[in-house]
Amino acid sequence: MIDIRNLTKTYGDKKAVDDLTLHIEKGEMYAFIGHNGAGKTTTIKSICGLLDFDGGEIFVDGVSIKDDPIACKRKIAYLPDNPDLYDFMSGIKYLNFIANVFGVSREDRFARIKKYGDMFEITKDLAEPISSYSHGMKQKLAIISALIHDPKVLIMDEPFVGLDPKATFLLKEEMKQICEGGGAIFFSTHVLDVAEKICNKIAIIKDGKLIRSGSMEEIKGDESLESVFLELEDINA
């Protein structure tokens, strides 16, 4: 579904992402891990067409993100690491706005807003302005806005930050269902035991370079993901 080939992105002298190649197939729950500043957010933003890149190609279902970004973005849902929402809008207005952007029908959007609003227990807050929301509520609203057009590919940057344990649990369940339904999820996280439990594939990035990628069993074996990751960090230091 997502094909990243030799992706390179430079900021001045520094290579933020260096010749990264990765393939994300249907049904895969892909964890993307690395230390702060390793290049995770740069990679994710390049996939979503938010950042131009200096080398390589990215294809979403065979379509190049450079040639037809709109067609690619239609298939993807993106959840950034900090929910940037329109503070002046109410929650429901924002969701309707996003639904309009993606051309979601009235019946579908109503059903999904009800479903996810009840799931994350923010339905009663949707009429309030977003400026009055706590960080956790904003994160939940951003998640709902990402799911509202029933995306086949979900790209998320640190989705669990700010979520309480119940919401984390519910999001994980929803992510599982998306993958079981033929979708794919690619997300970065620092919470390695979550990645370990729910993901079947993993990619580890360090200083812009992909140092490991493959199935969870291959990468971690019998050890915990955390010990494997920290070992790799030390070896490559």
Binding site: I33, G34, H35, N36, V161, G162, H190, F229, L230, E233
Partner: peptide, 10 residues
Amino acid sequence: LNGLDADGMR
């Protein structure tokens, strides 16, 4: 622990 990477959490 919010915002810390795996090394930071350790």
